[in-house]
């Protein structure tokens, strides 16, 4: 399917988010565009994952103030599925295990749900297997992996690859990568970065890159960087800021910021 070349937008306006009665995000305003890579950095507990979950619509993360707009449409109260249908995707840091459901069966269900919604014919078992095999080869994944139960007993690297496989198959408009680099070695990070490059070749996907490491940024060279601290934006910039952070290392950068 040919995706439109028009730029699509995701705008976060003055977002306040509460988890179990405690406010974590205190008014975040951010603009994302398709085709761009936007890195969101910050130390542990700065609210990065909260932002990711709130954008995706996790019921535990309550938006008490502010708005989320997708191409100008207010989606603040949309269900998780409605957001996914619009083209939002979250690569989970800790994806939930679902026993007895194989990766291939689950992905066939997900792909066919999407195809049905878009008025396309459902893929047969054989065609969906072919598609899966093709994408798994791109990610250097063992074809046997498809018979494993979804996220059950996966190693850190396996979880991340499985998330990237889903990203390749579902082709979202905006993909939020919640610390997809954490717990990976250099090769693992390269593999994930490769998946993202492949996905972006297909369609002008917007990448929201949540990380607190600079290695991943080097691989993906973000167009924009936002730094979060204690639920607030403390710095924003473009490629230059990204370079600065990459050179100094994130921790050093944050230290300097807080000393100023």
């Amino acid at each position: 399917m040919e995706t439109t070349k028009e730029i699509q937008t995701l705008k976060i306006k003055n977002l306040h988010v509460e988890v179990e009665g405690k406010e974590i995000l205190h008014g975040i305003t951010l603009d994302f565009e398709s085709g761009n890579v936007h890195a969101i950095m910050g130390p542990n507990g700065s609210g990065k994952s909260t932002l990711a979950n709130a954008i995706m619509g996790h019921p535990k993360y309550k938006i008490t103030k502010g708005k989320i707009l997708f191409n100008g449409q207010d989606i603040t109260n949309y269900s998780v599925k409605e957001r996914a249908d619009l083209g939002l995707f979250l690569s989970f840091q800790y994806p939930a295990e679902v026993a007895g459901v194989t990766i291939s069966n689950f992905l066939r269900e997900a792909i066919n749900t999407k195809r049905e919604r878009e008025g396309q014919e459902k893929l047969s078992v054989i065609d969906s297997y072919k598609l899966l095999k093709e994408k798994m080869e791109l990610l250097d994944m063992d074809p046997k992996f498809r018979t494993r139960d979804l996220n059950s007993g996966f190693s850190g690297g396996e979880k991340k690859r499985s998330e990237m496989l889903q990203l390749l198959l579902l082709k979202p408009v905006f993909a939020i990568l919640d610390e997809t680099d954490s717990g990976l070695d250099v090769d693992g990070i390269k593999a994930v970065a490769k998946a993202i490059h492949i996905a972006r070749k297909d369609s002008p996907m917007g990448i929201i890159l949540i990380t607190h490491y600079e290695h991943f940024m080097r691989e993906l060279s973000p167009d924009k960087v936002t730094v979060l601290c204690n639920g607030k934006i403390i710095q924003q910039g473009s490629k230059e800021l990204a370079k600065k952070i990459q050179e100094k290392g994130f921790n050093q950068f944050v230290n300097e910021q807080s000393n100023n």
Partner: peptide, 13 residues
């Protein structure tokens, strides 16, 4: 809740 959130985030009802 986590399982439901995960599966719904992939477009399942």
């Amino acid at each position: 809740e986590e399982q439901l959130f995960y599966l719904q985030s992939r477009g399942l009802s």
